[in-house]
Measured scan of single mutants.
Amino acid sequence: EPLWIRPDAPSRCTWQLGRPASESPHHHTAPAKSPKILPDILKKIGDTPMVRINKIGKKFGLKCELLAKCEFFNAGGSVKDRISLRMIEDAERDGTLKPGDTIIEPTSGNTGIGLALAAAVRGYRCIIVMPEKMSSEKVDVLRALGAEIVRTPTNARFDSPESHVGVAWRLKNEIPNSHILDQYRNASNPLAHYDTTADEILQQCDGKLDMLVASVGTGGTITGIARKLKEKCPGCRIIGVDPEGSILAEPEELNQTEQTTYEVEGIGYDFIPTVLDRTVVDKWFKSNDEEAFTFARMLIAQEGLLCGGSAGSTVAVAVKAAQELQEGQRCVVILPDSVRNYMTKFLSDRWMLQKGFLKEEDLTEKKPWWWHLRVQELGLSAPLTVLPTITCGHTIEILREKGFDQAPVVDEAGVILGMVTLGNMLSSLLAGKVQPSDQVGKVIYKQFKQIRLTDTLGRLSHILEMDHFALVVHEQIQYHSTGKSSQRQMVFGVVTAIDLLNFVAAQERDQK
């Protein structure tokens, strides 16, 4: 057995438009009618409502009807409940999964919650491996369901041993009777949507819809739904939504950006999952974080739909894509998950301010006199920076000697690579993860907040409520011999709460 199987392995699926269902090699399930009293909570997966979006479509000038398939009504709160249950049931049916076995899954959280929910009911041990950027709410729900959680670096490539995929496979090879159901490759993922989600949409719309818009992560949702719609409703256009920084969209030119990270969760990847059939997507749109969270908040405030950030991405694209539809036509959007997962993220004004998705003037509360002053007023001194090749031991000596707790790590040209902190280095040394002679590049981390000289002290204040420091950066445009230009970030300084307090105190003292 291989040590790991690539999540982007070539698909062996034989589905073709027009091929009889009787030739399918898979076990198919028909939607079942729910009894009045459910035998367990797993029976509350599927049969989610279709809700008309009344205000947002009109606000953006849509002539067509805009409908939302509300997947956050599933038992675990997301569309991923469907595939989690289906993968477990299919693994039980073919004898792969037996009582007492362990389920391991690399996930952005929602599939993990679905699997942990099913594992709690069915009696399996469950280990979820997820990147650090995923919300604390997801972690809390997983723990409450009895799952064990392993976190991995957000910026690790999918084929790196440190990625959530790599760590999951390492655990599988170490733990007896453990299984990775593997949402990236498992046919049960798109089949769950082909058999149930798509049929529900067709039934709820009486077979009449002209466009379907869905955000894409593993691709199982859009693949399964689109294949069924292509068979039953061939005139329906399928629109895929991919965040900026991901590479799922086609044509490839759409993916060209210097951005590699994004805040919206559960969609987009740096590889093409095996289950994603991009041939059934008629057109791709890219979405960005700001519009995703703005539209998610709009869905909550104006439509009462308590959905997550990827739902915002989907609707932001839908109001663009559906401009081509006329009166009497219908566009369906998939709202994948609930706001429950993001209470401390985009639902929080403070978080939105820190990330730059909300401006101070958007909030009406009274601010102190210094709130709208610029960061450049602080008069920061030149920063202490270190090269990635310097040793951890030497870096600790320098920081202690100069009285700093942290320093930016830059390359020879001064471009920011990340940050090192005294606390992080000492804990890594004590844990045996690094040696004093190791290069400081081994303990770089990139989960820090950046701020510009033109940003306000109010925004800085919000950042420092949650973080010990902020890195002050400025952009530099560099022209190359080819005539092309590129933008790079340079370090201007490091600012802490002490710097802000000293500035405010000094100004008030001078005024007296």
Rank of each mutant, 00 (worst) to 15 (best):
G379S: 12
G458Q: 08
V472H: 05
Y269K: 04
D337W: 02
V443M: 13
L387E: 13
E324R: 04
H474E: 13
V495G: 15
L335N: 06
G493N: 11
K286N: 05
G403D: 15
V443L: 07
M419N: 12
T389N: 15
I247F: 05
I334H: 03
L254M: 07
T391P: 14
G240N: 02
G245C: 08
M425L: 14
F271T: 00
G308Q: 00
K320N: 15
F357N: 05
N502Y: 12
M490P: 14
G493T: 10
L399V: 08
I398S: 14
Q439R: 09
K442Y: 13
L347C: 03
G356I: 05
L306N: 01
S287A: 12
G309R: 00
K449N: 11
E360P: 04
Q435M: 15
Q487T: 14
K320V: 05
T261G: 05
P251V: 07
W284I: 01
F285H: 11
C392H: 04
S486G: 12
Q476N: 13
I396Q: 09
V333E: 08
M490H: 12
L306Q: 00
Q478H: 15
T395M: 07
S461V: 15
V264C: 07
K484E: 14
E291N: 08
R488H: 15
E252R: 15
S338A: 11
Q476D: 10
L426S: 14
E475P: 05
S313D: 02
N255Q: 05
F285W: 03
M490T: 03
T294R: 10
S287C: 15
L276G: 02
F295W: 14
G304E: 01
R340I: 03
R297S: 05
F285A: 13
M425H: 07
H372E: 13
Q478E: 08
Y479V: 13
V504L: 07
E361K: 12
F346I: 08
L464S: 08
R488P: 11
T496C: 09
V281R: 04
Y479R: 12
C307Q: 06
Q354K: 12
A407Q: 11
T364E: 11
T260K: 11
I398M: 14
K402W: 03
P273M: 00
G240C: 08
E465V: 11
W284M: 00
L387G: 12
V333R: 06
A407R: 03
D405K: 08
Q478M: 12
L464W: 09
P243M: 08
T482K: 05
G403L: 04
M419E: 05
L347V: 05
E360R: 12
S486T: 14
T395H: 09
G268Q: 01
A382G: 12
P336A: 04
V410L: 14
K484R: 13
W369H: 05
Q489R: 03
E377G: 10
L335W: 00
H474Q: 13
V491R: 06
E377H: 06
A296M: 04
T395S: 14
V375N: 12
V473K: 10
A322V: 03
D467W: 11
K446I: 08
R488E: 13
V281T: 07
T454A: 04
A505K: 07
D349F: 02
H394G: 11
S338F: 09
R400Q: 13
Q259R: 13
E412F: 10
T260S: 14
P383I: 10
T456S: 08
Q256Y: 10
K367E: 14
I267D: 06
I416S: 14
H468D: 09
L299M: 09
F469L: 13
A407K: 04
A318N: 01
G268M: 00
G403E: 10
A322F: 01
A311R: 03
L306R: 01
L384G: 08
G328D: 15
Q354R: 10
L460Y: 08
D282Q: 14
C331Q: 05
E475I: 10
Q447R: 14
T279E: 13
L501V: 13
L429T: 08
G312C: 01
F346K: 05
G308E: 00
V472S: 11
F404E: 03
M466D: 12
E250L: 13
Q354S: 12
T279G: 10
F293R: 02
A321W: 03
Y479S: 15
M343I: 09
E508T: 03
Y269N: 05
T385I: 15
S428G: 13
E397Q: 14
T454N: 12
V332D: 00
S313P: 13
I451H: 08
P383Q: 07
K512S: 13
V443K: 10
E397T: 12
I396Y: 11
L417G: 14
A431Q: 09
P368R: 12
Q476M: 11
R297P: 01
L335D: 02
A407E: 11
T279S: 12
